[in-house]
């Protein structure tokens, strides 16, 4: 077992030595891998932020239940009880007096409200469903419509559907881009390993002659691919995080103009791990293919 670990340790050291032996080449290829990985990763993070922003917009993915104007506290309590039972997500009650007060405070509406002889607004419930899929929202709205004393249920489902479709198209585009660029990354690693194999021809020949197995000879190249890809992923992560940091403030201001308090963020820890992990996996794949082809026969 000691031999097994020491051979893997030696292969890792050899891979690191090969990477550091030509720093300029290594840096250039890491820049290429970093940019290749950063493009879909940035798209991924951007879509996540967009979803967060949309979810945080007032009125979006919310269902408003307007009661009949002449309903009293009993009916409101009944609706509250049904909501508690259905547990669709977050919900709260907006009393008609509070709604009028809010309307009065709205710019340009003060004079209009002052001209009213009585409060025309109904009591209302606002529901923010935990599951924001359009079909779920519509099903909930349909249920609410069937409840007694509910005069009107408002759901901006068109907006919700547009957003959902936009996010789906965005995810699909990012996925396609990721597949294309993954192919490019595998090709870059394949070629780097091919050059490494040519450069190490003497060492490979001698190692074979003195008893090295195929696994012993292939292993450093595979570790090289993993290390190469992981470092490229790390570089991509720094790029995405750096760009995110630069753009966070102006995008946050833009979001605020739409009434959203959502603060854009860079890659989450799980996304960061995935970027580095995917880089390492693609590097390994490129190395594996290169080794399989170049040592065939």
């Amino acid at each position: 077992m000691n031999g097994f670990f020491s051979q893997h340790y030696a292969a890792q050291k050899s891979a690191a030595r090969r990477l550091s032996s030509s720093p300029l080449n290594t840096l250039l290829s890491l820049i290429v891998i970093g940019i290749v990985l950063a493009l879909p990763a940035a798209g991924w993070v951007m879509l996540d932020n967009l979803q967060g922003f949309a979810g945080n917009l007032p009125g979006v993915q919310q269902i408003s239940l307007f009661m009949m104007v002449d309903t009293g506290e009993k009916e409101a309590a009944e609706i509250g009880s049904r909501l508690r039972e259905a547990n669709p997500g977050k919900w709260w009650f907006v009393a008609r007096d509070d709604a009028l007060k809010h309307l009065t405070e709205t710019e340009g509406m003060g004079d209009v409200v002052a001209g009213l002889t009585k409060n025309p607004l109904p009591d209302a419930f606002v529901v923010e469903p935990g599951d924001s899929r359009p079909e779920v929202l519509e099903r909930l709205a349909e249920t609410f419509r069937s409840w007694p004393a509910v005069a009107h249920v408002q759901l901006d489902s068109a907006w919700s559907r547009r957003l959902d479709l936009f996010l789906r198209i965005g995810r699909l585009a990012v996925s396609l881009l990721a597949v294309l660029l993954a192919g490019a990354l595998v090709a870059v690693t394949f070629n780097t390993i091919r050059l490494q194999i040519l450069a190490q021809a003497a060492e490979i020949e001698v190692s074979r002659l003195i008893g090295a197995t195929d696994a012993f000879i292939h292993r450093p190249f595979q570790y090289f691919g993993v290390l190469h890809g992981a470092l490229g992923g790390l570089f991509a992560l720094l790029l995405v995080a750096g760009i995110g940091r630069i753009l966070a403030a102006p995008i946050g201001e833009l979001f605020a103009l739409y009434g959203s308090g959502f603060i854009p963020s860079g890659p989450s820890p799980s996304q960061a791990g995935a970027i580095v992990g995917i880089g390492a996996a693609l590097g390994w794949l490129g190395a594996r293919i290169s080794v399989a082809i170049h040592f065939r026969g």
Binding site: N2, G3, F4, S6, Q7, A10, V206, S207, I210, G211, A212, T213, F216
Partner: peptide, 11 residues
């Protein structure tokens, strides 16, 4: 050291 690393002898 090369043949010894091939057989996995501790460093």
């Amino acid at each position: 050291l090369l043949p010894l690393s091939i057989v996995g002898l501790p460093a």
